[in-house]
Simulated assay, not measured.
Amino acid sequence: MKTLPILVVLLLALSGCDKKSDVFMFDCVVYDQKVDAPVSGASIIMKVQSATGGFNPTFVTVGSAITDANGRFYIEVEKGVYFSYRLEITDSKHFNGTFDINPDDVPFSTAYSSTFPLEPRAWVSTRLVNQNSSQTATFRIDAETGNCTDCCQSSSTIVQGNSVDSIFTCQVYGQQQIEVEGNYVDQSGALNQISETAFATAFDTTLVTIIY
């Protein structure tokens, strides 16, 4: 049996080490804590804010990946001096996530590991039915939405008319208790309260019907 000379073995070993010596490694997981499951098929974009030549506020894309069945992704970034790393994570069933990573937390010779949480999408459909010729109804959805600009807003929706049968739908974070609250003015001019609770199941639409 032929054996490789010791020098060749050493050279091969060194070349294997050099292969990873010029990159920063990111070996991370995307996870949905609300449903307690990894997020597979999520799109990952890695950006950096370079410190070469002074401060540059622009983030430049340097890598991308797709999470596997376990929510894991791996990205290599060419070694350099950076002010910040930024991960942009998107998935059709979850709200997008943007996460900044401090360069001081990134190891020089081993992989950076972390778990990044995404919030599941859910929808609340509020059906207002005016069966009593009431005058005006006002309602809002009380739910956790974080900084989501496309979600149910804290401001109230005003509905007028005697023959109303309308559905208003908006997004919230999934797996949470929500409340539809407001009031309506009946035929006599009296003010009545609206208060209905429901559970917004992740990845689904929850219907709340208000009859006034």
Rank of each mutant, 00 (worst) to 15 (best):
D32S: 15
T205L: 10
F95N: 08
T52C: 00
V23M: 09
A122E: 07
G53M: 05
F73W: 07
Y173L: 05
K79G: 07
I45E: 14
S113W: 06
V35H: 06
L118P: 04
D105A: 11
Q160G: 05
T206Y: 08
F116L: 13
T206L: 10
I6E: 15
N56E: 08
P5G: 14
S43P: 00
E144Q: 07
S21W: 09
T157G: 02
T197C: 02
S40W: 12
L118H: 09
I45T: 15
N162L: 14
Q171M: 11
I141L: 06
S64N: 10
T157P: 00
I178V: 13
Q49T: 04
A69E: 15
N130Y: 09
K2G: 12
P107L: 01
I75H: 03
S156G: 01
T90I: 09
I101D: 05
Q193L: 06
F55K: 07
G182A: 07
F116G: 03
C170K: 00
G182C: 07
G189K: 05
D186C: 11
A198L: 08
G189P: 11
D186R: 12
V129Y: 11
N70K: 12
E181P: 02
S109G: 00
G63H: 06
F203S: 10
V29I: 15
Q193D: 15
T206E: 09
T157Q: 03
K2T: 01
S15W: 13
Q176G: 05
V39K: 14
A37N: 07
F203M: 10
E144A: 02
Q177T: 06
S156T: 00
N162A: 13
D105H: 04
E76N: 09
E196Y: 06
D91I: 05
V9Y: 02
P57K: 05
T201I: 03
F83I: 06
N147I: 02
F116E: 02
D27C: 11
E88I: 10
V164L: 04
P38F: 10
D186H: 10
Y31L: 08
V48N: 06
S40Y: 13
G80D: 14
D186G: 08
D150V: 00
C152Q: 00
T201E: 08
E119F: 03
V81P: 01
L191E: 06
